Simulated assay, not measured.
Amino acid sequence: MADVLSLRQSGFDAVEQTWREFVPSARLRDPGPEGRAELAWQSAALEGISVVAYQLTGNVRSAIEPLSQLMACRVATDSGWVGAPRREYDVALPWASSGAVTEAGWDGPATVRAFVFELDHAQEAARRMSGDDGLMLEVLDPAPRNAAAGAHWERAHSYVLAGLVASSRTGTPEPLLESELRRHALHATLTTFCTSFADALERGGQKRPAPLSVRRAISFMESHAAEPVTIDDIAVAAGMSTRGLQAAFRRAMGTTPTEYLRGLRLAGAHAQLKEGGPLTVAEIARAWGFAHPSRFASHYRARYGRSPSETQRQG
């Protein structure tokens, strides 16, 4: 279950200490005796990833060098700047780093959103996605590929943080949902920025149909749909890269493995709804990996022609 932290603090020392719990290299330059900092913080942490969102008001000068981490961040402010020692970034867009120093400054309020991945975890996941066991994950350019990609990353951040916070409130571990959110955060980051992951994808494309591998993937999904498996786990079980599996699956089945797995999970939720029982529709949706009830209801209605609540009432 995600470890969620919400707090408010004053003073640069307290603010810096909080941020260093997530990025040990984080530091704030002392603004002098008159300087003040006001922090409103929220974060959610799972193994290998922390999702951070905070508002920091003050005369701020900060620096981060995320060693052994992959970090993607957006500093939204009307009165500041973000950049590396020899390059200024567009404050309207997020940026990423796998070790390079990034500095920022502002006078007044700023809203900061970040994914902080442990580099070893992210690299292992990227290797499974790409099928390249030798991939050394690094950020090649801190800027997003374009503004649309940057906007996609911000939506992904909001989605993942909201999902983890809501999951923590249930008081019950939801490993399937957490696994999906962790992967969504990493995939959004790796596809938003220019990284070595993109090169690995180009090298790892599947060139020939693989019906046996597709059958293995289907068998694995049918056996593990209720477990926190991802498309990368399915590709490993099928003996191919994630990208190769996607290409082979589309050729053989006319759909994607993600859509097929979603169908299996919808079927599992459908069966559970028909049984009745004490769980709410939202609880059943989350148990089958759907973070937002409205999206679950939309997928469910498209497949079964009625709402989840109607199925639960009518059987």
Rank of each mutant, 00 (worst) to 15 (best):
R36P: 02
L39S: 08
R36H: 09
I64M: 14
L39G: 11
S62T: 07
R74K: 11
W41F: 09
W41I: 05
A72W: 03
G35C: 01
R74L: 05
V75I: 14
T77R: 12
G48K: 12
V75Y: 00
G35M: 01
E47W: 08
A45D: 03
Q42A: 15
A63P: 04
P66C: 10
Y54E: 14
I64R: 15
V60L: 08
E38W: 08
G32N: 02
T77C: 13
A53C: 03
E47V: 09
I64E: 15
Q69K: 15
L70Y: 08
A45M: 06
E34I: 01
V75N: 10
M71C: 05
S62M: 04
Q55A: 09
M71E: 05
A44Q: 06
L70R: 12
R74V: 01
T57K: 14
L39W: 10
G48I: 06
S62Q: 05
L46N: 05
G48C: 11
T77D: 07
I64P: 00
A37C: 05
I64V: 15
L39D: 13
Q42G: 10
S50A: 11
Q69G: 04
E65P: 07
G32C: 01
M71S: 03
L46W: 01
T77Q: 12
A44M: 07
V60A: 08
S43A: 14
G58R: 06
Q69L: 11
L46P: 02
C73S: 10
Q55Y: 03
A76Y: 01
M71Q: 09
A37N: 08
I64K: 11
A53H: 12
E38T: 11
A63N: 03
G48Y: 07
E47N: 15
A53Y: 03
T57C: 08
S50T: 15
Q55C: 09
R36N: 05
N59W: 03
I64A: 14
L46E: 04
G32E: 04
S50V: 09
A72S: 15
V51K: 03
Y54G: 09
C73I: 12
W41D: 05
P33F: 08
V60F: 06
I49H: 02
R61P: 04
L39M: 11
W41M: 08
G48W: 07
E38Q: 06
P66Q: 14
S62F: 01
A44N: 02
A40T: 12
I64Y: 11
V51R: 05
M71L: 12
V52K: 04
A53P: 03
V60H: 00
A53I: 00
V60G: 09
R61T: 13
